[in-house]
Design a protein around this nucleic acid. Structure first.
Lengths: 176, 176
DNA sequence: GTCTATATACAGATAGAC
DNA sequence: GTCTATCTGTATATAGAC
């Protein structure tokens, strides 16, 4: 993976999380990275290809984070709390969840992106279900759904009100 | 209020809830309403003025709906369930919450819109807190926050997965 | 209130030189 | 891989006639 491509993904990730995928252009991206906008098309032929790469990258990052937590020798409760911290980190940079953002923009991102967003949230829920099962929950699947809903919604509210604590409050009851 | 202005608000509301406020243009709006895009500027000088009117309208609608529920002779539990139905109605039209959508697009809508989004969610939470207090909850305020978070997040997931039932599942534990 | 015409800027994207 | 140059389309917005 070229350095330019990596830089493009990093900047595009931040712009998507702050302004939305429809809230920035190849020109914005080019100026930040220090190349011409036409050069971006070499790395991502169309903007939708960038969207796909972003969701896949975010998905891979999440899978890595969850696998690391599985490997670590801590309780399921602490694993879940660590995952919350992972998402909570967005708020201090005034970011929203990249996949939540694209889920909001769903009707404009195209079917290929939609498919990958579904996969992202399915894996997040599956991992949470596993943790809740390990904690002895019978309704682990529903609990995982409640958790993801509260997570995405609280990230939205926390950024709006500039109160990172909102995320912890919204998820408090669901952890154990 | 002129009929054209009202039509513009109705179409803009739907487009915002489906494609996002940055996902449609004055031209899209004009074609649906059947006027020229330059005519829209007579009703809403700049696009940000349209955004403000949309949030205020959505806020007013919510206040009316909540006031109606307060007047009706039903239990707080049923009031809350009715409010859920109010939001759940969006899903079958593949819409997201207008204020949730603009909260996602926060960094591009400007400070005036942000201020009104904060007011919208504050009133929604305040009403819910009142209902939870009537149900005897000591942590009514936190519960209201949990409810709004789960509501906004579940609306996002329900639309993505085309499963309206997700909203009820995500909020189930929080109602009573 | 709505129109035509226009201004200015920017969007995503391509061709071909280097 | 990145550039210059360019294309085509669209965005928000304004001026002034009707």
């Amino acid at each position: 993976m070229s350095d330019t491509r990596e830089q493009l993904l990093e900047v595009a990730e931040r712009l998507t999380q702050t302004k939305g995928f429809n809230g920035f252009s190849y020109l914005d991206l080019a100026e930040e990275v220090g190349i011409k906008n036409s050069s971006i098309h070499y790395h991502f032929k169309a903007k939708v290809d960038l969207a796909i790469a972003l969701v896949e990258r975010t998905h891979d990052d999440l899978l890595t984070a969850m696998a690391d937590l599985d490997k670590s020798n801590i309780t399921p409760e602490k694993r879940i709390k660590s995952l919350i911290s992972y998402f909570q980190g967005y708020i201090k940079e005034e970011k929203y969840c990249l996949c939540g953002m694209m889920a909001a923009e769903l009707q404009t991102v195209g079917p290929k992106v939609k498919k990958r967003l579904v996969a992202y949230f399915a894996d997040l829920q599956a991992w949470l279900e596993k943790q809740f099962k390990a904690l002895g929950h019978k309704d682990a699947k529903v609990r995982a759904l409640q958790f993801v809903s509260a997570l995405e919604g609280s990230l939205l509210l926390a950024r709006l009100e500039n109160k990172p604590s909102v995320v912890g409050q919204a998820l408090g009851n669901l952890i154990k």
